[in-house]
Nucleic acid binder design. Structure first.
Lengths: 205, 205
DNA sequence: CAAACTCTGAACTGCCTAGTTTAGTTTCCG
DNA sequence: CGGAAACTAAACTAGGCAGTTCAGAGTTTG
């Protein structure tokens, strides 16, 4: 009864998740009603409650699914082994920025941040399944560059955090608040700047 | 009628703002009812509507007031002119981190981020009155260091953004999601690391 | 003291919400 | 084909919410 498992059923389940995601990201958790989700999914409200016990559980399922998708996208973060340090860092930075600034990703982040005081367990789950995995992947990549002697990082984890921090900066901040990007937030300049700083600060002796 | 202006009146007004801020930050905008605010403020709901036209306006007034407070706090960002570059940057970083990580500041930021899709004008007002002013102040300070020949920054604004970005990093991210700080987010190490990187990257020739 | 201003408390309107139930319909699979 | 599982539409419960209204009480000021 709770989680039907035929083909038809799982199709409906997906439709519900898709619709709910769209609604939650657009209107926020509290401003989304189950009727709205039902209408968007083209499904009756009873069906939603056949698949998910409550609005909360539905919300959790969406975050979970998004994290899985995002984790899959992290595969794209691989870097060609023949590149020099500058090219490799620039490549990573471009991919990472593109990943982070997707509307969906920003929307999820906003929603989780918004609800984190009321859903702390969910915030943790999101952080572990999403950003944490991404950061681990980045550390691996940087370690690769260090092993090849292209960079000299005493603490790869910290260097990664600094790199990501610089990339986020104003661009990310404006995107998070939904403000139009300004001249000062030109992405390419941000990337180039961050790469320059990292290269200078962690140049091999 | 709309904005009474005697002493008693303005005392009530403050009480309402204090209570509303506490409620909004704790429960979020959508989950806070005007009855809740009235009860917290020890005031009747009618009185709230005598001072503020709507829940939205009340919300806006809180953000505005917080920004003013925060702007006042930026005065504390002054730096002793006798300090060398490392000491000056460390000093700024400490003050900035302390400022950003206050519960109130984090709460406001979370709430504004959460509501930005539904209140874009408010997001802009917040950004202009809060973070933007802080960043301008920081640029001034960095320019001071550049003029004294302690740093060589081709683009002070970008360097500032990088500095702040590195400072935020994992610490800020965890605080925003309400996660407990981990070993990896030790504040002093973050500060020292960011200062090191900036010093190396922007050392005068 | 008295008029003008301000606040209170409670009731009230009209609407929206999560979640349930019911009775009837569609789809699937053996 | 027949029964079981899944779905639908709509009504329903029970409650919460923004915002209004008003008679009366408290406060300020001239």
């Amino acid at each position: 009864m709770l989680k039907p498992c035929t083909n038809r059923s799982s199709a409906k389940r997906s439709a519900i998740l898709d619709a709910a995601q769209a609604c939650f990201l657009e209107h926020g958790y509290a401003n989304t009603s189950m009727d709205m989700v039902a209408a968007t999914a083209g499904v009756s409200k009873a069906t939603i409650y056949a698949h998910f016990q409550s609005k909360d559980e539905l919300f959790g399922a969406i975050i979970q699914r998004r994290c899985d998708d995002q984790a899959a996208g992290l595969g794209a973060l691989a870097v060609d082994n023949s590149l020099d340090a500058r090219a490799a860092l620039t490549e990573i930075a471009r991919k990472l920025m593109a990943l982070m600034l997707q509307d969906e990703v920003m929307g999820i982040y906003r929603t989780v941040v918004a609800e984190s005081p009321r859903h702390p367990d969910l915030a943790r789950a999101y952080s572990d399944a999403g950003p944490k995995r991404g950061k681990e992947r980045l550390v691996e990549i940087l370690n690769g560059l260090v092993k090849r002697g292209l960079l000299d990082m005493p603490d790869t984890w910290q260097a990664m955090d600094q790199f990501v921090g610089m990339l986020r900066g104003e661009v990310f901040h404006r995107a998070l608040l939904g403000l139009p990007p300004s001249d000062l937030t030109d992405m390419d300049r941000t990337i180039e700047g961050a790469v320059d700083v990292i290269l200078t600060a962690y140049a091999p002796k």
